[in-house]
Every structure is written in structure tokens, then in C-alpha cells.
Design a protein around this nucleic acid. Structure first.
Lengths: 186, 186
DNA sequence: GTTGGCATGTAACCGGTTACATGATTTT
DNA sequence: AAAATCATGTAACCGGTTACATGCCAAC
């Protein structure tokens, strides 16, 4: 079992390899669109990042230009080497522990506010997460069988969506309980 | 009420202003240490980032060099302007929605693996989150009253720690349930 | 023929990471 | 005298964001 260490910044490559595996050959333009509607909840990238990355990946033999379409359209396919790379990352790579979020920073600094202000802030957060949760749950409702044959998946990986919903729900509960906690001490 | 828009990258400034508020005047060195033991779970920064940032903040009038100690040690204090900035960020700033995590990307790409492999991956994740959860819960047990007078807080903001625990727990439950789900379909 | 979507790229900038570099003071 | 730790900085690099720039093709 070959121990390979992956640098943090492999993830864009991996996401692209994943999409190419799931939806078959596609152009950079296609991939950018797919990014917006599927992986976006989990990883973001614009075309200005995707085009050069695909070029580098082609140079590294992970993808290949299968054909060239009408207006300079280049269709990329994943190579055997690319598939191998993707599999290795999925199986061997432990996600880096570095975590960063503005919400958590606000949570951390919460004691600096006086109780009334903290409650106000938490209430805004609560509303935000409620709408977010509703959106995600609707997304799931609209795609009960998200793995379509041929297509690979609908709008969002089932597992990732489930994970996302659980996390948002946990955050929402945190906000609600924190409000109650602060009000009790008021 | 002055509407100010904050760029994404204000957070390091805010974290530093927060620490200076909570623990009083401190040097860049001190702040770097405090970062490791407190904010680290929520925001990371090394000294190579902190020193230049403090210099810029001083130039912007958010902090001031209060005194110079033994070996070139510079002690920074937060200014009135700095406090105001911090308050504004806490109250007016809605955290950016951009979310990015390698774990979620693995979750997203999970369907690419065959069931056995997916279970293996999920089991590794499960173990990882169990230990992480245990560590966080111990941290909370050791600091039941985390806001100490004078010091500001112990090792971790109470609210942020609570939020972190809830999220890890949610992730753990996701892993457990996903394993069960896949096994049922096997 | 003009508008709008398809399609690809480059450049400037910014924040974060790693590594390099230096020197003063305290401890052993 | 040597080692450890205090203390501050700089430089190179890399990934991500925003904005700039160009040209093709289809539809109206």
C-alpha cells in the first residue's frame, strides 16, 4: 500500500476528477457550471481557477483532451492515472484538521458583548440557519433518489447533503439553547 | 448606525483585538502563544502573520505600543478605535457563507467508492471524531467556569466550545448512521 | 446586426503557510 | 560555555478571489 502524502491544495484537482468520473467527459465550462450546482456547497471554484488547473492536470497526465468542439471547446476525460489518484485520495487521505470559520470566531468572542447584544446576535444567527436548513431540506425532498443512473448524482451528493443538514441543525440548536441560557441568567 | 462592509480577511485583526480585550495588553509573542492555546480551534495564525498584522493595525490606529520590554518586546494595547471596530464587527458583520472542507468533499464523492470501501472510510472517520469529541469534552470538564476574572477565559470560549462539540457530535452521528445505512443495503 | 450565452483564458491582489534569519536573555 | 527559550521579523510560495480581456456562435 503506497503511502502518499497529499498537500492541502489537492482538493480542487480531486473535485474535478470526481466530477469527470461521475458525469463523464466534460469541458472546463461544463465543470464550472456543475461546480455551481453541485459541489458548491462543499467546495467552491470559479472558471478562472478551473481552466489553469485542468491544463496542469493534463500536463500531469491525470486528464486528457478527448476532443475539441465548436468554439474552442475542449472536452476533458479522466485518465487511468487520474482515477487512481482519485481513489488514493479518497482512501488514504485524512482531511487536514485546520478549521476556520467566522461564525465560530463570533461565538468565541461572544462573552465580550453584553447579554442583550449577544441575544440579538444569536437571534440573527438563528434566523439565518433556519432558512438555510429549510433550503437544504427542500433540496433533499426534490431529489429523493439523488443517484441517477448515468448521471451519477442530482444536485448534491447524498452523503454530503445529509452531513450538511445535520451540521446546520446542530448549529441552529446551539443558537437556540444559547439564547435560552443567556436569558435565564439575565 | 454606520453601515460598514467588512472584507473577508478582517478576521485575524478581529481575533487579535478580541484577545487584547480579554487578556489586556500583550506582545506579539504572547498573542501567538494565546492563539495556540485558545483561538486555535476556531482561527489559526502563526507569528509570521501576527507580527506584520499588528504593525498594520498600529498604523491604522486600532492598537498602540504601550511599552517596550527587555528583548525588544513590544507590548500592544487596544485603542478606543480598536474596541469600536471589534464591536462593529461582532454586531454588524454577517459571516460569509463560503464553506470549504475536505471531509465534506470526501462525503460528496463517497458514491464513487464501492460499499465496502465506503464503510472502511466512514469507520476511520468515526474513530477520528470519537477521539476529537472526547478531547473537547474533557476540555470542557476541566474548565467548568471558563470565564475567569482578570484572565478573560481559560482555554476556549464557552460558546465556541459548545458549538464545536455539537458539530463534531453531529458529524459522528452522520458517520455512524451512514455506516448502518450502507450495511443495510449490502 | 445586435444581444446574449458559450467558451477560454490572463493579471493583480490578498491571506495563509513554510522556511529562513537574527539576536537577546535566561537556565543549566 | 552551551542550550533553551524569548522575541521579532522577512521572503518565497501557493491557493483563491476579482476583474479584465477576447472571440465564437446562435437566436431574435
Amino acid at each position: 500500500m503506497s503511502r502518499v502524502s497529499y498537500s492541502e491544495g489537492m482538493s480542487l484537482r480531486i473535485a474535478l476528477l470526481g466530477l469527470l468520473t461521475a458525469s463523464g467527459p466534460a469541458s472546463g465550462y461544463d465543470l464550472a457550471k456543475t461546480f455551481e450546482t453541485s459541489v458548491a456547497h462543499v467546495w467552491q471554484a470559479g472558471h478562472s481557477q478551473i481552466y489553469p488547473e485542468l491544463a496542469k492536470m493534463a500536463a500531469d497526465g491525470l486528464v486528457a483532451v478527448e476532443a475539441e468542439g465548436p468554439r474552442g471547446r475542449k472536452i476533458y476525460t479522466i485518465t487511468a492515472e487520474g482515477s487512481q489518484e482519485l481513489r488514493r485520495w479518497m482512501l488514504d487521505h485524512s482531511p487536514s484538521a485546520t478549521y476556520r470559520s467566522e461564525e465560530s470566531l463570533q461565538a468565541f468572542l461572544m462573552p465580550l458583548l453584553d447579554p442583550r447584544e449577544a441575544i440579538e446576535l444569536l437571534q440573527r444567527m438563528k434566523v439565518h440557519y433556519e432558512t438555510k436548513l429549510a433550503q437544504m431540506e427542500e433540496l433533499r425532498r426534490n431529489h429523493p433518489a439523488m443517484r441517477r443512473k448515468g448521471e451519477g448524482w442530482g444536485h448534491f451528493g447524498v452523503y454530503a447533503l445529509d452531513l450538511g443538514i445535520r451540521r446546520v441543525r446542530a448549529t441552529l440548536e446551539w443558537a437556540v439553547d444559547s439564547i435560552a441560557d443567556i436569558e435565564r441568567r439575565l
